[in-house]
């Protein structure tokens, strides 16, 4: 296991001298041909953020774990996500109406705390909480990092038996925070949002869907 170390051999000094020169010259030459060849190869970088072929978020795979968003119309407030989160960055509060229906008080995700591990989204049984491909999350103060998903009072908690279809990923976040992560894009491609204006989901809370798709 422990090998014997062979004694170092001392080469002929004259040969070593000229050998050093030869190796220095030839290896420098080799290295320079390599670097020279790169002048003819395609650069591998892209010019983020404004000169990419398409927005970076669309180059990301579907599996990408970006900022979290929740589709409240599908959320049953089972609190599994909040319990799974190792950091406790999700805070959910509901209150109960006398008629038995439950209403969201808060559904906040603190992106300043979130470490994008994906455990919460995995725990969600109704595909309500999911990672988007949004990643440009910089804001000007720590408080703004908390995304408040309950946008209006009286949003009812969904029932597990009749859930509307999941709204396209990213659309909720985009609607909630206008210009979130899109501020710096000068040459914004005129593409419409990922979903061709989905029919307003027949949610439990009625026909209106004020966010739409920004």
């Amino acid at each position: 296991m422990v090998p014997a170390v062979p004694p170092p051999v001392r080469p002929n000094p004259v040969r070593a001298y000229f050998g050093n020169i030869r190796r220095a010259v030839s290896s420098t030459f080799e290295g320079m041909t390599v670097t020279m060849s790169w002048l003819f190869r395609r650069p591998s970088t892209i010019q983020y953020p404004d000169r990419t072929e398409k927005p970076v978020r669309e180059m990301l795979p579907e599996t990408y774990r970006g900022l979290l968003e929740v589709d409240l119309s599908r959320c049953t407030a089972c609190l599994l996500c909040a319990k799974t989160c190792p950091l406790g960055c999700i805070s959910i509060e509901t209150c109960k109406h006398p008629d038995g229906a439950r209403e969201f008080q808060t559904f906040d995700i603190d992106n300043g705390l979130c470490m994008f591990c994906g455990l919460c989204a995995e725990a969600c049984n109704f595909d309500a909480l999911a990672h988007t491909r949004e990643f440009e999350a910089s804001v000007s103060s720590a408080e703004q990092l908390t995304v408040r998903f309950v946008d209006r009072p009286g949003r009812l908690v969904a029932k597990a038996k009749d859930l509307p279809p999941r709204r396209p990923r990213g659309s909720i976040l985009a609607a909630l925070i206008p210009g979130f992560g899109r501020r710096r894009r000068r040459a914004a491609p005129p593409e419409p949002p990922a979903s061709p204006a989905p029919a307003p989901a027949a949610g439990a809370e009625g026909p209106e869907n004020p966010e739409g798709t920004a």
Binding site: L60, P61, T63, Y64, R65, M115, F116, C117, G118, L119, E122, H131
Partner: peptide, 24 residues
């Protein structure tokens, strides 16, 4: 990193393995 992103969704902090398998 791009491949990892496809596999597990992150480029650096993979959090890919689960007890009893992998996340994806």
């Amino acid at each position: 990193n791009d491949i990892m992103e496809r596999i597990c969704g992150a480029r650096l902090t993979y959090n890919y393995l689960r007890f009893g398998g992998v996340s994806r």
